[in-house]
């Protein structure tokens, strides 16, 4: 009976994952491996293709209602162009199109703002997923906030991995593939933002988790009882223990020949914390050095006094 409960929990979290994160790893890998027929992503590899990509997405804009229905086909935080749909001041396409008359410095900032807009939307999706974890909504509300504040960037980085390969990443609802080299060619410190995520993702992808494994792993990350400032750690640890058991069983059944996968996965959580710390420091540096930068209020809330 206990194993049956753990399997039921795995199924429940997988269903919630599919509900809130429509661009699954399965879909992303199909796009990346060219198995989607004619629907190949548009490739952005230089400034010219970036301009063309902007045009391309402009033609394919999704009506707001449809977008709300989809909530997000884009799973990770680097969702360039997504701001276009919201009409928010953070949107990339919501602003004027790129022209030679603009100061060159604005391009990176505009792109960065569009990423922020998509990230904020992704935080909302992760919050909905967290609320679907049995017992999460019964925790002290302040502890729920703390778990999200500390967990959400880690979750977003894990969710970015399926969208990436060694050469680049899918963005904009899987419609665009942006090359790693292009991201590296942006001016500093923007050029330094994605490289650590690529390095992590390439290694993480070798574990070959599928979407049902991912759902459990994300729940484990969210339910970390060692986040600073938690008021009532015990119920969080109890919830996490159950999800950990479910994950362990899931990996045994789903990857019977992959030895020590559970242990390897848990080790990734240490790497993740370092990546998030570095990411937050980079954002703080940007805030100091970029005169025109504004940080999305939700991301500001999350990153303030984080590390």
């Amino acid at each position: 009976p206990e194993a049956a409960d753990l399997r039921a929990l795995a199924r429940h979290l997988y269903e919630a994952y599919l509900k809130y994160f429509p661009l699954t790893k399965a879909k992303a890998r199909a796009i990346l491996s060219g198995k989607t027929g004619d629907n190949m992503p548009f490739v952005i590899h230089d400034m010219k293709s970036l301009m063309e990509g902007e045009q391309f997405i402009n033609c394919k804009q999704v009506p707001i209602q449809e977008l709300q229905h989809q909530t997000s086909t884009l799973t990770a935080g680097l969702g360039g162009f997504a701001g276009a749909h919201s009409g928010s001041e953070y949107g990339f396409l919501g602003m004027s199109s790129i022209s030679g008359e603009e100061p060159p410095d604005t391009l990176e900032l505009r792109f960065f703002h569009s990423c922020q807009s998509r990230s904020a939307e992704a935080v909302r999706e992760v919050t909905e997923f967290a609320k679907s974890i049995p017992g999460f909504s019964d925790l002290d509300l302040n502890d729920q906030v703390t778990l999200l504040k500390y967990g959400v960037i880690e979750v977003l980085i894990i969710m970015m991995s399926p969208l990436m390969n060694k050469d680049g990443t899918l963005i904009s609802y899987g419609q665009i593939f942006m090359t790693r080299e292009f991201l590296k060619s942006l001016r500093k410190p923007f050029s330094q933002m994605m490289e650590p995520k690529f390095e992590f993702s390439v290694k993480f992808n070798t574990l070959e988790l599928d979407d049902s494994d991912m759902a459990l792993f994300l729940a484990v990350i969210i339910l970390s009882g060692d986040r600073p400032g938690l008021l009532n750690v015990k119920p969080i640890e109890q919830l996490q223990e159950t999800v950990l058991h479910s994950l362990e069983l899931q990996l045994k059944l789903n990857h019977p020949v992959s030895l020590q996968l559970f242990a390897k996965l848990l080790q990734k959580m240490t790497d993740l914390r370092q990546i998030v710390t570095d990411h937050v420091h980079l954002i703080q540096l940007l805030k100091k050095t970029e005169v025109d930068m504004c940080l999305h209020p939700l991301l500001q809330e999350i990153m303030k006094d984080l590390y």
Binding site: S88, R124, V145, L298, I302
Partner: peptide, 20 residues
């Protein structure tokens, strides 16, 4: 609570998307 107003809002609103 004020420090994390939007997160509180996201956690308490059921499914309706908060204006981000």
């Amino acid at each position: 609570k004020e420090k994390h107003k939007i997160l509180h809002q996201l956690l308490q609103n059921s499914t309706s998307p908060v204006d981000l």
